[in-house]
Amino acid sequence: MKTFPTSAAWCLGILFISVSLITTGSSEVQVVGPADPVVALAGDDVILPCSLKPSVSAENMVVRWTRLNLKAGNVHLYRSGRDSNVEQVPSYRGRTSMFNEELKNGNVSLKLTRVTLSDAGSYRCFIPTLTSQVKETTVQLLVGAVSQPVISIDGTKGWGVVLKCESGGWFPEPEMEWLDSSGTILPADGPPERHRDSECLYSVRRHVTVDQTDTNRFTCRVHQKEINHLKETEIHVPSEVFIG
Rank of each mutant, 00 (worst) to 15 (best):
Pro128Met: 05
Pro149Asp: 04
Thr156Gly: 02
Ala145Cys: 12
Val143Phe: 11
Ser152Cys: 01
Ile151Val: 13
Val150Ala: 11
Val134Ile: 15
Asp154Arg: 04
Val146Asn: 04
Val139Lys: 03
Pro128Asp: 09
Ile151Gln: 08
Val161Thr: 06
Val162Cys: 07
Thr129Val: 03
Val143Trp: 13
Leu130Phe: 00
Val162Glu: 11
Val162Trp: 01
Ile151Trp: 09
Thr138Met: 08
Gln140Ser: 15
Thr131Ser: 15
Leu130Lys: 00
Thr129Cys: 01
Gly158Asp: 07
Pro149Ser: 08
Val146Trp: 01
Thr156Gln: 11
Thr131Trp: 09
Lys135Arg: 15
Gly160Val: 12
Pro128Glu: 05
Ser132Trp: 02
Ile151Lys: 09
Gly155Phe: 06
Thr156His: 02
Leu130Gly: 00
Gly160Gln: 05
Ile153Arg: 05
Lys157Asp: 14
Gly155Lys: 04
Ile153Pro: 04
Ala145Pro: 09
Thr138Ala: 02
Val139Cys: 01
Phe126Glu: 02
Thr156Ser: 13
Gly155Thr: 03
Ser152Trp: 02
Ile153Trp: 06
Gly160Lys: 09
Leu142Glu: 06
Gln133Asn: 11
Thr131Lys: 14
Asp154Leu: 01
Val162Thr: 14
Gly160Cys: 12
Ser147Cys: 08
Phe126Gln: 00
Gln133Phe: 09
Ile127Arg: 03
Thr156Pro: 01
Val139Trp: 14
Gly160Thr: 12
Val150Pro: 00
Phe126Asn: 06
Gly144Ile: 05
Lys135Cys: 03
Thr156Phe: 04
Val162Ile: 15
Ile127Val: 15
Ser147Phe: 03
Ile151Thr: 07
Ser132Glu: 03
